[in-house]
Simulated assay, not measured.
Amino acid sequence: MSHYQEAPKWDVDYVSAIAANCNAQKYNAKKAGDASSELFLAFYIEKNQPFYADCVVVDIKQRSFDVIVLKTGSIIRIYPNTCQTKTTWKVEALPITGPETQCEKRPLKLTITFQKTKKNPKVDLVLEIFSSVKVRLERKQNSYKLEGTLLRPIPKQVFVNKNIKDPENSENV
């Protein structure tokens, strides 16, 4: 005597409809969870402004680029009008070599020029995929979405401690 039950005699369309409903419910639950996380993050950033973040470029388009915020995983789109100071943008298509030359989308390189100011020299920032940038995050007004402002890169400077004597120019070191 077998202790197994007889296999159900369900119609294929019935099982397909149940699976489609389960998948839709799972997708909607994920969207609700993601929206809840975005809302909490937007309120957190609003309370802790200014909020500066290290980001990595993940996509370059003709009139914008996307970054991923390393601490949160949020993807933010940066536009020319959301740069810290007046900038000029120049987009170039990168050459493709090798077997992937048949791909539809060519990778882009973006050169952002920060103009000279009273305190800062002119700076060219060249961005490609995986370039690192600094962004100030703010909550968009009347929204839970975040807006990013690209910050001017700080030029590398050599800091000198004036209390340390130069051994070549000092008798007693």
Score class of each variant (00 low, 15 high):
D13S: 12
Y14T: 13
Y14A: 09
V15N: 01
A17N: 12
A20M: 06
N21Q: 12
C22N: 11
N23V: 03
N23P: 00
Q25R: 14
N28E: 15
K30F: 07
K31I: 05
A32L: 10
A35D: 15
S36D: 13
E38K: 07
L39Y: 09
F40K: 15
E46K: 15
E46H: 15
K47R: 11
K47S: 09
K47D: 11
N48C: 02
Q49M: 09
Q49V: 07
P50M: 04
P50N: 06
P50G: 09
F51A: 13
A53P: 05
A53F: 03
D54Q: 14
D54R: 12
D54F: 07
V57I: 05
V58K: 08
D59Y: 02
I60C: 06
K61W: 00
K61H: 06
Q62D: 15
S64D: 11
S64E: 07
D66H: 07
I68E: 14
V69L: 03
V69A: 06
L70T: 14
L70Q: 13
L70R: 13
L70S: 11
L70D: 12
T72L: 01
S74D: 11
I75D: 02
I76C: 02
R77H: 03
I78A: 01
Y79L: 13
Y79H: 12
P80V: 03
N81L: 04
N81P: 01
Q84K: 07
T85D: 15
T85Q: 14
T85M: 12
T87S: 04
T88A: 12
K90N: 11
K90F: 06
K90V: 06
V91A: 07
A93C: 13
A93W: 00
L94K: 13
P95W: 00
P95T: 10
T97Y: 11
G98I: 00
E100A: 08
T101D: 06
Q102T: 14
C103Q: 15
E104C: 04
E104S: 10
E104P: 00
E104D: 10
E104H: 09
K105G: 00
R106Q: 09
P107H: 03
P107A: 09
L108K: 15
L110H: 03
I112C: 04
T113S: 05
T113K: 08
T113D: 01
Q115Y: 12
K116I: 13
K116W: 09
K118D: 04
K118N: 01
K119N: 05
K119S: 03
P121L: 04
V123N: 02
V123E: 02
V123M: 05
V123L: 02
D124C: 10
V126F: 05
I129C: 08
I129D: 09
S132I: 13
V135M: 03
L137A: 07
L137R: 03
R139T: 04
R139K: 15
K140T: 06
K140A: 11
Q141D: 14
Q141T: 14
N142I: 07
N142W: 13
N142T: 12
